[in-house]
């Protein structure tokens, strides 16, 4: 399991445009980082670069406690972006079961996730019949179903109501208390104590 995330002198370029450069920060176990910045500043790109999906123009992303960055990425992080990857025509149960077992979760994890996100009644519905907030809960359930150290979340709370923002806050707290790390792009404050890193300032 990884015990820290180290971003050094990172620069990201999309096409001709330089989104940001010389970005460095460190997250250690139990720490949450809120990425703030204007629309289009590069928060999502940063998350994708940490996940290894996007090649940075300069700089490095390192995972402490891991021999190999590719291994760490495939075993120790969850990325949940704007697009949740859920197929509208399949049931929430099928989609969650796939996402969880693809990420190394098991039956017990699925049950835990359904309980934590109160998905009982939703699981048998087709994903396209869910509301935006319900759909986000199904997407986030993967975090609980397959425990991993680093959570990369893009606007995780945006479609959720106030009750659910609070409950997800509880999940985040538990994750951090267990030595997990959180890197979240947000516009509203996170419901857990977090260090703010401004992108594209």
């Amino acid at each position: 399991m990884i015990s820290g995330l180290l971003v050094e002198d990172l620069a990201i370029r999309r096409g001709e445009r330089l989104l940001f450069e010389h970005l460095s920060f460190r997250a250690s176990a139990g720490e949450a980082i809120a990425l703030i910045g204007r629309n289009g500043a590069g928060k999502t790109s940063l998350l994708r670069a940490v996940a290894g999906l996007l090649r940075p123009a300069a700089g490095t992303v390192r995972f402490e406690g891991a021999e190999d960055a590719a291994d760490a990425r495939s075993r120790d992080l969850h990325l949940i972006g704007h697009h949740d990857g859920l197929k509208g025509g399949r049931t929430a149960r099928e989609e969650l079961a796939f996402a969880a077992s693809w990420s190394g979760g098991d039956e017990a994890g699925l049950a835990r996730a359904a309980e934590a996100l109160d998905l009982g009644r939703l699981l048998d519905l087709e994903v396209r019949k869910l509301s935006a907030g319900q759909r986000r809960r199904v997407g986030l359930a993967r975090l609980v179903a397959a425990p991993r150290a680093l959570w990369l979340l893009d606007e995780p709370l945006a479609p959720l109501d106030s009750v659910w923002r609070e409950r997800i806050g509880g999940l985040l707290k538990d994750h951090l208390a267990g030595g997990g790390m959180l890197l979240a792009a947000v516009h509203d404050p996170l419901p857990v104590p977090a260090r703010a890193v401004e992108i594209g300032a």
Binding site: R48, S74, L77, H83, D84, G85, A99
Partner: peptide, 18 residues
């Protein structure tokens, strides 16, 4: 195309099998 559009390809790309 569909996995690319709805974000599932991110999940698949990050999986352990490669």
């Amino acid at each position: 195309e569909r996995d690319f559009e709805d974000g599932a390809l991110d999940l698949l790309a990050l999986g352990e099998p490669g």
